[in-house]
Nucleic acid binder design. Structure first.
Length: 245
DNA sequence: TATAATGTTTGAAC
DNA sequence: AGTTCAAACATTAT
């Protein structure tokens, strides 16, 4: 469920609750439900893979992790982690991480790195990307401080589209190629968004979860690469491994 | 049916 | 003290 674009869809679906008062807050999340009950939703934001439900002076941060889900005006049979009821509907979150945080999220998040944000700042992200030359590119793309919202699917697809081997060091990439990865992370995330909305995401995957390179018709290489040990799918012919030599 | 995965935090062990 | 690693959370598709 949860890479940045999916959380942006959630945010848009939940926008009907902005300005509305929470008439009931429930669930097995270990937070003080009384703190938000009766409060008005000031804003509903996303930052990367996180959902931020903003109230006056306090906000709820929801992270769907790997298996989290949500339903609006519907329910599952299992107990919700968090359920919010409004006069015009309700939303329930399941199997996710929920935290109640004091303050204003604007003080804690920098939307310049959020891959889906209007405030996304290409130059700023380029600079941050360049500042991690010792990282493998497959790890760097999953760094939420640089590419907030990019997940494993986007990582695999972007590296394939840019023809870069996942085990290339960021510092070994030519500047033009590094910039291309930054731009493609952004562009691909919005294609992901459109496909996800249309429920046709999977069929557009070029390498993620695939067996063959769509260009060369040869088996893709796969492995749990980098210090994050996340699945990588890549083509040895298409994707160049940049090295210092 | 067993396996593995769109993710992150925590805390123990080195 | 910095790092590395397993554990924990838990659903669903193949």
């Amino acid at each position: 469920m949860p890479e940045g674009p999916s959380i942006a869809i959630l945010r848009d679906e939940a926008s009907i609750f902005v300005g509305k008062r929470v008439s009931r807050a429930e669930g097995n999340a270990k937070i003080d439900m009384g703190r938000i009950e009766g409060q008005r939703v000031v804003d509903w934001r996303s930052f990367g893979k996180q959902t931020l439900i903003v109230f006056d002076g306090v906000y709820v941060r929801v992270h769907l992790l790997m298996f989290g889900s949500y339903l609006i005006n519907e329910r599952k049979d299992i107990a919700p982690r968090l359920g919010l009821t409004f006069r015009n509907g309700e939303i329930h979150f399941y199997n996710c991480s929920v935290k109640l945080l004091e303050g204003d999220p604007a003080d804690s998040y920098d939307w310049r790195v959020d891959i889906m944000s209007d405030q996304w700042d290409e130059k700023f992200v380029r600079r941050k990307f360049r500042a991690m030359p010792e990282e493998l590119v497959c790890d760097a793309l999953l760094d939420q401080d640089v590419f907030a919202g990019v997940g494993n699917i986007i990582k695999n697809e972007v590296l394939y589209l840019c023809k870069v081997h996942p085990l290339s060091l960021v510092g070994d990439l030519p500047a033009r190629k590094a910039n291309e990865i930054v731009a493609q992370a952004r562009a691909y995330s919005f294609r992901f968004l459109d496909w996800k909305k249309a429920h046709v995401l999977r069929k557009h995957w070029l390498v993620h979860n695939k067996g063959q390179c769509p260009v060369h018709q040869i088996p893709l290489s796969r492995g749990y690469l980098g210090h994050r040990k996340r699945r990588s799918f890549f083509c040895d012919l298409c994707q160049r491994r940049y090295t210092t030599e």
